[in-house]
């Protein structure tokens, strides 16, 4: 296993922003030693029926960053989300920063370039993003060294981002009572997801873990922060030493019962372009929807 530069001595300030429409949590992560910050997994609002895109959720993040006088250095996507649209380009336009995602985005772009029958103008080389991370790559937020861990399974391009004692797990783990992310999208794999989760659980027990999604199982309030120790002990899908085989069987059976995310078509189409909405030949924003294609 890659030797990751874990540094539990740095404790960034983490602010979570819950999006009720998609149960996504976006984060502002501040370097404790400077005014530098990163945004993780932002959300662009869409009224799908009307085809209307707005930015209330992203504006709330932007306001916080401005009010606190922070400098945005990175806009991180843990993966190409299938359930919400990224606001990365909108935030970048307002505040600057570089948009980064895992280098395996190219696999996702290739898969969904076919699904949407994209023309040659849609590049499948990740060039829509400013940075493409490989497993173990480090980058700085102010003086804080951060790194990306390759964690495929939910998608082929998923990465967990670790900043000091805080890890942003994307769609690998959910809260201990929520379990794990589904692994049935194109390129997903339950066995890979189990292996990726083990990589997360190999981080120090005290590592804070921040979820990308929470659905408040069994009526509890929405929550998004836990720890490696808690997940190891209590996660209902992988905690208490569940074996890989047990997990794969359970995950596969459960995934077969799940409906597609409501926003899967617009999400993939926009997010594989780093959050940019495609346009027609006259420059009008337009989504292209395959009929009987998923």
């Amino acid at each position: 296993m890659t030797d990751y530069p874990v540094n539990m001595g740095v404790t960034p300030q983490v602010q979570g922003f819950f999006d009720e429409a998609t149960n996504t949590i976006s984060y502002i992560v501040k370097d404790p030693a400077s005014d530098a910050c990163a945004v993780i997994d932002s959300v662009m609002d869409i009224d799908y029926a009307a085809g209307r895109i707005t930015y209330d959720h992203a504006d709330a993040l932007i306001r916080q960053i401005e009010d606190q006088g922070l400098r945005l250095e990175w806009i991180i996507e843990t993966h190409v989300h299938a359930d919400h649209l990224s606001a990365a380009p909108y935030i970048q336009e307002k505040l600057g920063g570089r948009i980064g995602i895992g280098s395996k985005i190219m696999v996702v772009q290739d898969t969904f370039g076919k699904v949407f029958n994209e023309g040659t103008e849609f590049q499948r080389d990740g060039s829509q993003f400013d940075a493409l991370f490989e497993d173990g790559d480090t980058y700085m937020v102010g003086g804080m060294t951060c790194f990306a861990m390759y964690t495929p399974g939910h998608t082929p391009a998923c990465m967990v981002h670790v900043m000091g004692d805080a890890a942003f797990v994307g769609d690998t783990l959910f809260m201990p009572d929520g379990g794990s992310a589904r692994a049935d999208f194109p390129g997903g794999d339950a066995g890979q997801l189990y292996d990726s989760i083990q990589k997360v659980l190999a981080l120090p027990d005290a590592m804070r873990l921040f979820m990308c999604h929470d659905y408040g199982p069994n009526g509890r309030d929405i929550a998004w922060e836990t720890s490696v120790g808690d997940e190891k002990a209590h996660n209902i899908h992988v905690g208490g030493g569940k074996t890989r085989d047990e997990f794969v069987k359970f995950r596969t059976e459960r995934d077969a019962t799940l409906a597609m995310p409501r926003l899967i078509i617009p999400s993939l189409q926009v997010n594989m372009r780093a959050g940019k909405v495609p346009t027609d030949k006259d420059g009008n924003p337009v989504l292209k929807v395959p009929v009987n294609g998923l």
């Binding site: 085809g51 895109i53 029958n117 924003p285 337009v286 929807v289 395959p290 009929v291």
Partner: peptide, 20 residues
């Protein structure tokens, strides 16, 4: 009728953004 299929044999709908 669905829109005429593209060369991959699939029909695609267009959803205009921010027209409503």
């Amino acid at each position: 009728r669905l829109p005429e299929p593209e060369e991959d044999g699939k029909s695609y709908l267009k959803i205009p953004v921010n027209k409503f």
